[in-house]
Write a protein that binds this DNA or RNA. Structure first.
Lengths: 154, 154
DNA sequence: GTCTAAATTGATAGAGGTTCTCAATTATTT
DNA sequence: AAATAATTGAGAACCTCTATCAATTTAGAC
């Protein structure tokens, strides 16, 4: 659990909304999106708005206490787990699961040094089709192609 | 250059628009977005539409001949270079440059085996602030913070 | 504790990127 | 050449996310 002191920096004020959003994220392992976070936050503070959720996710990511995960088209998911790891995103439903493997963070400094880019971080993301989204034909073949589901409809 | 035969598969027809879009992408090393591709495509075929560009980029990515790069908020960029490598994306302007380093593709099969996900691929993406976007203060410090530019405005 | 300045909130409008719809066209199969 | 189905072009629609702004709340000074 990230301490309040970590969340307070010059020009930044720690509101109960921001702390709530972080706590929700810390308590979950399912990488929720902004809407799901909003839903859970409303159980505690019904007046909270979507804009506040987005703004705070952005601030928390800037502070480095959470990570944004790109799903390539389903809206970002977020992760507040402290142990570095990578993600496996379903190409069809956007679901995200953890992969217990990541690159050394010293690589970020190395890339920064070689390119002149500042504040370098990285994301190692795998993309695939999850068992729930794969069709029978795809499972049999062990390979997902795009239009199998269409031919199975009829 | 990817051969036409590679682009023809059951239930798929190779149009001149699709080939054009791929050729444009193959000829460039600057990771254009859909709009930039549209712009260049119009020089050859002025009637081509944005929807066609998006549809074909999606198909080509499904066929595995191009890669979609997530910029986390600036719209996807695309890459048709054959040699595996990773990307460094500027958090402020979305510009993408190559990083000549990537993971072994055997890792994809490994992840697939362990998780049951099909068609697993991966993206190793670095995020940072490019020299053009970094402020003087950030460059001096060697570290980009979020609101330095604000305090420099006045 | 009270006061002040500035960050943040909630509500909602707006922007940007991407997808959908559908009639017309075009690539492939027979 | 004809039939079949994928693809196109045009534009509306969609969805995620950001901007705006008055009202509120936090952090620091007194």
């Amino acid at each position: 659990m990230v301490e309040d002191s970590t969340l307070r920096s010059p020009g930044r004020r720690l509101t109960k909304q921001r702390r709530l959003i972080l706590r929700i994220l810390e308590s979950r392992r399912d990488h929720p999106g902004a809407l799901e976070i909003l839903e859970e936050a409303k159980k505690v503070q019904p007046s909270i708005s979507l804009g506040t959720v987005y703004r705070n996710l952005k601030v928390l990511a800037e502070q480095g206490v959470i990570k944004e995960i790109s799903t390539l088209g389903e809206g970002s998911r977020f992760d507040a787990q402290p142990v570095p790891h990578s993600h496996l995103v379903c190409r069809r439903c956007g679901k995200v699961i953890d992969v217990p493997f990541d690159l050394s963070e010293t690589l970020d400094a190395e890339v920064s040094k070689q390119t002149g880019y500042l504040s370098v971080s990285h994301a190692l993301t795998f993309y695939g089709v999850c068992p729930d989204c794969a069709t029978e034909a795809e499972r049999k073949r062990g390979w997902a192609t795009e239009r199998d589901e269409k031919s199975e409809e009829g």
